[in-house]
Design a protein around this nucleic acid. Sequence first.
DNA 1: CACGATTATTGGAACGTTCCAACGGAAAGG
DNA 2: CCTTTCCGTTGGAACGTTCCAATAATCGTG
Lengths: 338, 338
Amino acid sequence: MREPRPTIHDVASRAGVSKSLVSLAMRGSPKVSDASREAILQAAADLGYRPNAAARSLADRRSRTVGVLVLDLHNPVFADILDGIQSEVRAQGYSTMLVTGAADPDREQAELDKLLEFQVEGLILVSHRLSPAALRRFAAEVPTVVVTRDDIHGPRIDTISNDDVAGGALAAEHLISLGHTRIAHLAGGDNPVARNREQGYRDAMTSAGLEDDITVIPGGLTDAAGYASAQRALAGPRPPSAMFVANDIAALGAIAAVQECGQSVPGDVSVVGYDGIALGALRTLSLTTVAQPLERMGTLAAQRLFARIERPRQRAHHVLVESELVVRGSTAAPAIDL
Amino acid sequence: MREPRPTIHDVASRAGVSKSLVSLAMRGSPKVSDASREAILQAAADLGYRPNAAARSLADRRSRTVGVLVLDLHNPVFADILDGIQSEVRAQGYSTMLVTGAADPDREQAELDKLLEFQVEGLILVSHRLSPAALRRFAAEVPTVVVTRDDIHGPRIDTISNDDVAGGALAAEHLISLGHTRIAHLAGGDNPVARNREQGYRDAMTSAGLEDDITVIPGGLTDAAGYASAQRALAGPRPPSAMFVANDIAALGAIAAVQECGQSVPGDVSVVGYDGIALGALRTLSLTTVAQPLERMGTLAAQRLFARIERPRQRAHHVLVESELVVRGSTAAPAIDL
DNA sequence: CACGATTATTGGAACGTTCCAACGGAAAGG
DNA sequence: CCTTTCCGTTGGAACGTTCCAATAATCGTG
């Protein structure tokens, strides 16, 4: 265990060849004779040789690794996006280094600094909380793709996102079309994604002539936040008959609060979420939501990143994916009276 | 962007000192004079210098990195455990490299091989699916801690786990004490954790004189699996009045199936899960469960790993943490008749 | 005021790989 | 039979760090 790992030299001397030939053979070069190849592979296996990635990346000047930052592993949204990223990255023969920022900009920066020290060749940021300046600084050093947000533009910053304004409108329109008027929005806090969804809600309400009914309850993107803001909404003087919640996880919290109030979903209150997490499809929850193509967003992000690694100076791409309303059991027409 | 990164040499010549002194200064050595330190730091900042982790790890012969393998990022259990691991690892000044195996032994091996090429100093395996031989092979190369399982023992393999047999018994006893007799177990598939939970169920049923009522429905550890096996259980000739499901996620699936059958939880069927995921605490779900101290398990794992990195040859520790029954709204006494 | 002790600084070797120019030997061409 | 071409193979330099032994500069101290 503590004894030093075998190196390429050890393999070379055991196989009776030079280190250069071992290097060639390990990478499957066709210029190695069959006899040598076999001897080398055998020697490597005997010794339990593993190439040292640090040395390789140093000599090679490339790490074949991309860094991925995700906001929060507790939200299943990110697991889905990650699936897409990982499969594409692996297909390219690269590895991923995954870090989380816990929604703290300073820690995000620190984690990204670490990734750059590891010489990652590119960065995928899934729902970061960086300042525009910080983001641009990183993007200037290494190809960068931002997933989920497209508010910060820069010469070399690609983005993959859905149209949160349109999605928010979709959610609100659905409730309006069911006949609701007292529709509250449980907002998702101080970040552009949440602000856009709120904007969509406001737009839809206004278009429907319901601008006087616009009610925005501040909140956040966690179940606890959704629970708390739903409670506040219900305690108000004129409780809503429907809620559009900033994301699915918070919507689950909101549903819990409604039920705890002795009211039913969708009988007394309809609830719409946003994201399309797998959990929402369970009959128990049966959450109506605006679903993003999460895994595909991950795949697209990785593809864009490799394209940019290939040609770093190309102009920024901003890919917009389609989100769609998925109507399930958490929404219905309002009760007869108001 | 494509221009080569500044190196320690560039910093040295800009600051008018030798590369060795820069190396010292960057690591905060006290032997550097204030004047030099200031000049060096300034030069490094001017150039945007970042130490190259690959070169450092090569020269230093240590990467200050630990590798973490998790089974599946979709199960929130692992996010909780990871929180514990990450905070402890960071506190030690190390980084983590996180990979997932998608429950496929071959891919797990491949991912671990990659981690070893990166010269990680230790491995934390959270719910792996490796063969004993494969696990021992890795443990022979690098300090290794296994979280969640303790079935494979080896001279240098530490484990952190809860007593799944006892936990399974706890769940079953709870249902028995409520007065249930037709208690089915929705099993978690072919892995030791699930097998132990099943064993606990069997033990408790037998102790209560209910051995003839033992009913085990094969299944898995995902929501879809729980949904499917619950359907099968309910379709049987003598449907259960209570179910103990192998984990929380599958229990959520099971509840969905029950409700879809037109039955209610806990009115018609009580459901107990296992793990203690945060979601289960939501009023909507209100899942009775056997809760493991997940985050603490992560912390303990990291602590054990560092202890073993320090002293590699110490004998294996097997830490057993306490799980506890958390009674919530998904369980109740059975309906009067049978 | 010379002396060893301390302090700050330095160049070179080492880490394990890849790349490259160069090599010897065998096959092919005249 | 001698050149040319090709192929498999090789040693050395390079990658960007850290470590170490050695040096230069500063300091008391007897």
